[in-house]
């Protein structure tokens, strides 16, 4: 599968990645190479093999419903780019 620059741009948008227009061709080439490589999988006759999402056949452990966390807002917001009145700030969201 060879990706066209327009497809790269579409994927980059879905992943919210700004790509320099000058780099789009290069990404298209690299990504196409990678896709061509993984397409070896097409030849696999997996039949009705169960997809394996986890290496271990374990099940989800459940934790008791208890409040164990305390307020650490100041500590956590120390690494935030923009905060005011305890809120994280982003450019205006239009709804």
């Amino acid at each position: 599968m060879a990706l066209k620059p327009a497809e790269v741009e579409k994927i980059a948008h879905l992943a919210r990645l700004a790509i320099d227009p000058a780099d789009v061709e290069g990404y298209a080439r690299n990504l196409s190479d990678i896709l061509a490589f993984v397409e070896q999988l097409e030849a696999v006759d997996a039949g009705d093999v169960t997809p394996m999402a986890h290496p271990l056949e374990a099940t989800q452990r459940l934790r008791p419903d208890a409040v164990t966390e305390t307020d650490q807002r100041t500590h956590f917001q120390a690494c935030a780019p923009a905060v005011e009145a305890g809120l994280y700030l982003v450019p205006r969201v239009i709804e």
Binding site: V38, L41, E42, V44, A46, V49, T50, P51, M52, A53, P55
Partner: peptide, 14 residues
């Protein structure tokens, strides 16, 4: 074609 197939292949490998 990609993800599900890869998960199946993963099973074969395991």
């Amino acid at each position: 074609a990609y993800y599900l197939k890869a998960q199946q292949a993963r099973h074969l490998i395991a």
